[in-house]
Design a protein around this nucleic acid. Structure first.
Length: 506
RNA sequence: GGCCCAUUCGUCUAUCGGUUAGGACGCAAGAUUUUCAUUCUUGAAAGAGCAGUUCGAUUCUGCUAUGGGCUACCA
């Protein structure tokens, strides 16, 4: 493929905090599209807002996406020939392009102070810095040339604004939304270069970098749609219209209830994570939960997110990353925002639990068991998880579903006792002990047949003795088939639990 | 206020003018099971409203309503 037509996309977050789950989805769609097209995925860090910079955020973003299996071909921490990939390290580049725009008459210096602008806004709330109003402002369009030169020479604070011509219609050809038109009259003369930190604003840096990094497709959230005409005008002002990237604006992730887009507060309020990994705020020390620490499989998070705004057009619901890559297209992306349904996320995790290799799950479980002081081994845990994983959504639910495989019940659930422990139970359990004494506990099917024969011979029925048996072994009325349980815990443990139960409950 | 985007079951969505409007999550019921859960079956549940185009509109157009985004020397 020719270099000029090669698909190159970028994910360009700001390091202002932990990466939001909506940002993760944007990264995912970029990745799916790039890989579907056989192209490159770039990680660019947009740290042009020095005031909002948060230490640790960049590392968090990199680690999160790596955990999820979203891989980059180049960018911060990955290298590449179009760097540097951190915008704060590209100041000289931006300065050069800002100067070019001024030289071409496409941009101008503005000396209006923040307080002057603020009073303008309070005087007329609809004030907009544009073709109609810039004539009354303090800028290089209204000031004599020597005055401008003097101000610049003595180091007065200034911004550079983009000079937008009125009466133009700008067409966006969005890959998801189709044609969208904007009138240039509604656009203001956006600040391109900030006086405060001598850094470009997002708009300038974004356009310059996408051009220099040969980005072919800009895939970002819907909140950027209104500033896209400005970006298009910028490409034109530079004379880059022929290589301008294509745009795709993704629908937003909305609150599960109520109104507005999904926020950190919704997670706190409704008790679910909105970040891929746990995040500790370096200033307040507040902890925000993450999908990773909440027990999610990265594959489940990916699968869940992929289907929030995209669908394959078939009834397939479970996808590997490779399947997603193969099937992804913007033609099958929806236009409307999607409410975040956390319950479905749990279901996806359950599906991946069922799919997961038991031995691998056991390996993940071992540290927690050791922390509980349980002496066990990989083979045993593998057999246990195989039996109980169908009733779990998360790995951390293992202990509550399987503790009785590792230790005898400490007490017997009152309700179960009332319902399942009958007058004849002590006698029946003693008889059961005798029968089990003669078994080698190797074959649950054979054991069950033996027990059945015993019940039938004595006309006990199955319910009463078997439920009492379960109560003695598990401590309550739940769990997999009782003979699967006892073949795992073994003869000695089974008999001990039976005898103890008879002793305690009488 | 202005500009833009959107609108099918509670939620995610299928439908690219003609369908009993399909699937999934969740919910309910039944079956299964010696228990709980799983599983299976079944069920309830939707085209925002009003016009228009058309032989025929969920699908096309307009208006209204509703929701969302943007409107910073933040991204």
């Amino acid at each position: 493929m020719a270099e000029s037509t090669r698909v190159r996309v970028r994910f360009a977050p700001s390091p202002t905090g932990p990466l939001h789950i909506g940002g993760v989805r944007t990264a995912l769609y970029n990745y799916l599209f790039a890989k579907n097209m056989g192209g490159d995925m770039i990680l660019r860090i947009e740290d042009t807002d020095s005031k909002r910079f948060v230490p640790g955020a960049e590392g968090y973003i990199i680690e999160s996406l790596s955990w999820l299996g979203i891989k980059f071909d180049e960018g911060v921490s990955y290298g590449g020939q179009y760097g540097p990939y951190r915008q704060s390290e590209r100041r000289a580049i931006y300065k050069q392009y800002v100067d070019e725009l001024i030289a071409k008459g496409k941009a101008y210096y503005a000396f209006d102070t923040p307080s002057e602008l603020e009073s303008k806004h309070t005087q007329s709330p609809n004030f907009q810095y544009d073709a109609r109003t810039r004539g009354e402002m303090v800028n290089s369009l209204t000031l004599p040339a020597e005055e401008v030169a003097a101000r610049l020479a003595r180091g007065d604070a200034y911004t550079v604004r983009f000079k937008i011509d009125p009466d133009e219609t700008i067409e966006i050809n969005d890959m998801i939304r189709g044609q969208v038109f904007y009138k240039s009259d509604v656009l203001d003369d956006k600040v391109l270069y900030k006086s405060a930190d001598q850094l470009p604003t997002y708009h300038l840096a974004n356009v310059v970098d996408d051009h220099l990094m040969k980005v072919s497709h800009v895939i970002r959230g819907e909140e950027w749609l209104p500033s896209t005409p400005l970006h298009i005008l910028l490409y034109r002002a530079f004379g880059w219209q022929d290589t301008m990237p294509r745009f795709a604006h993704l629908p937003l992730l909305l609150k599960p209830d109520g109104k507005g887009k999904l926020s950190k507060r919704d997670g706190d309020r409704l008790n679910f994570p909105v970040f891929p990994m746990e995040w500790k705020d370096p200033v307040t020390g507040d902890i925000s939960r993450g999908y990773r620490e909440s027990g999610y499989f990265p594959e489940a998070v990916i699968n869940f997110l992929a289907l929030l705004g995209w669908n394959p057009g078939t009834e397939q619901e479970i996808f590997t990353m490779d399947e997603l890559i193969a099937q992804f297209s913007f033609a099958r992306c929806s236009k409307a925002g999607a409410k975040f349904d956390y319950e479905k996320g749990k279901w996806f995790n359950h599906q991946y639990m069922l799919l997961a290799d038991d031995r691998r799950l056991a390996e993940m479980l071992l540290p927690d068991l050791a922390a509980r002081g349980i002496k066990t081994d990989l083979d045993y845990v593998t057999r246990v998880i195989a039996l109980v994983k169908g009733r779990m959504n998360f790995l951390h639910e293992f202990w509550e579903n399987a503790s009785y495989f590792f230790q005898a019940p400490e007490q017997y659930d009152e309700k179960t006792v009332a319902k399942r422990w009958k007058e004849e139970s002590p006698r029946q359990m003693n008889e059961l002990c005798e029968i089990l004494e003669g078994d080698d506990f190797s074959d649950p099917v054979a054991m069950e047949a033996k027990a059945k024969a015993w019940c039938e011979a004595n006309e006990y029925g199955m319910g009463v003795p078997m439920n009492a048996f379960r109560l003695a072994i598990v401590g309550e009325g739940k769990g997999p088939h009782i003979f699967d349980i006892v073949t795992l815990i073994g003869k000695a443990e089974t008999l001990a639990r039976l005898r103890r139960c008879v002793k305690v409950l009488g």
